[in-house]
């Protein structure tokens, strides 16, 4: 049973990570109806930002500032820079295509994803960059319940993930900005007529979504300890899966989907074999899409003529 609970904890942690990436993806889909294929690469950029912050302050073994401060700087910088990158991408590549046929922004998104990945390869090289998390966060500290250990990095990821998800939910439901975002998602033209600054709202949504991806990237660096230019693609795929399984465009759905994917992956790896974990995740997605194309928490869209 201990093994089961250990896998449960591991699954919840990676699930929280996927959920954060899926959230941003889902938000962007909500306002623009665009599958942002570049979202996974933003997560990769976030992970690199975290790595360079650690290097900047003397490397993992000889940090020149206290660890909590380092974590705050890492997360803040990743959120800010990646969020800014997301806004720049929206401004440069997606805004001119807002009224184009649906296929055009999708192909642009693929191009941006490929461009970001190659640019990271050019700038940072092909080698794995290692966070060396255990050198500054003690892996054995944490909570032990019976024989199940939740280490401090996992606690950090779970708590931060929970705070961000709840915070985002509150933001979307209860603030003026959230109301504007929901208005743009429901009907862009009507929102514009009612005085919503559509361009600003979309840019802000991109900022929030990309910042979440950047934060998730830093978390992934702390959790998995290594970064390379190709991690974005597979993480992006997992996030699509999470968003789609939960119902694309729905924020609780993205959280649920992320946790489900994390748990499924963790249990398949733990009980069967890691070889089939990706295949199984893809299979799960295809099954959900065929049975319930609108996702678990999504609403079926009526086609209006």
């Amino acid at each position: 049973m201990a093994f089961f609970f250990q896998e449960l904890v591991n699954g919840l942690t990676t699930g929280a990570l996927y959920a954060l990436v899926a959230l941003g993806f889902s938000m962007v889909y909500g306002v623009l109806k665009l599958l942002n294929f570049a979202h996974g690469d933003l997560y990769m950029v976030g992970a690199y930002v975290g790595f360079f912050v650690i290097q900047w302050f003397g490397g993992a073994t000889s940090l020149s500032i206290p660890v909590p401060l380092l974590l705050v700087i890492m997360f803040a910088l990743a959120a800010g820079l990646v969020g800014g990158l997301g806004v720049a991408i929206e401004r440069f590549a997606y805004r001119p295509l807002r009224d184009a046929p649906r296929i055009a922004p999708l192909i642009t998104a693929i191009g941006i994803s490929f461009f970001l990945e190659s640019a990271a390869l050019l700038l940072f090289g092909a080698q794995y960059r290692v966070y060396n998390t255990p050198d500054f966060i003690n892996a054995h500290s944490g909570i032990t319940i019976g024989s199940v250990t939740i280490n401090s990095v996992q606690i950090l990821v779970l708590v931060m993930g929970l705070i961000l998800m709840v915070g985002l939910q509150q933001l979307v439901n209860w603030t003026k900005l959230g109301r504007q975002m929901r208005a743009v998602a429901a009907d862009r033209e009507a929102a514009e007529m009612l005085g919503v600054n559509v361009n600003f709202t979309i840019a802000l949504t991109f900022f929030l979504g990309s910042a979440l991806a950047g934060v998730a990237g830093v978390m992934a660096g702390l959790l998995f300890n290594q970064v390379t230019s190709t991690i974005g693609f597979i993480a992006g795929l997992k996030a699509f899966t999470a968003a789609v399984v939960g119902g694309i465009g729905s924020i609780p759905g993205a959280m649920l989907g992320g946790l489900l994917i994390g748990l499924a992956e963790s249990f398949v790896t733990g009980y069967l074999s890691s070889t089939y974990s990706n295949l199984l995740v893809f299979g799960l997605l295809i099954a959900v899409m065929l049975v319930r194309p609108s996702g678990l928490l999504g609403q079926a869209q009526l086609q209006k003529v």
């Binding site: 055009a104 490929f114 461009f115 990945e117």
Partner: peptide, 16 residues
């Protein structure tokens, strides 16, 4: 790497 950058840039620029 330049070749890959070029392919990505073609997609972005042509679409826009």
């Amino acid at each position: 790497i330049t070749r890959q950058l070029m392919i990505g840039a073609i997609l972005i620029v042509m679409m826009n």
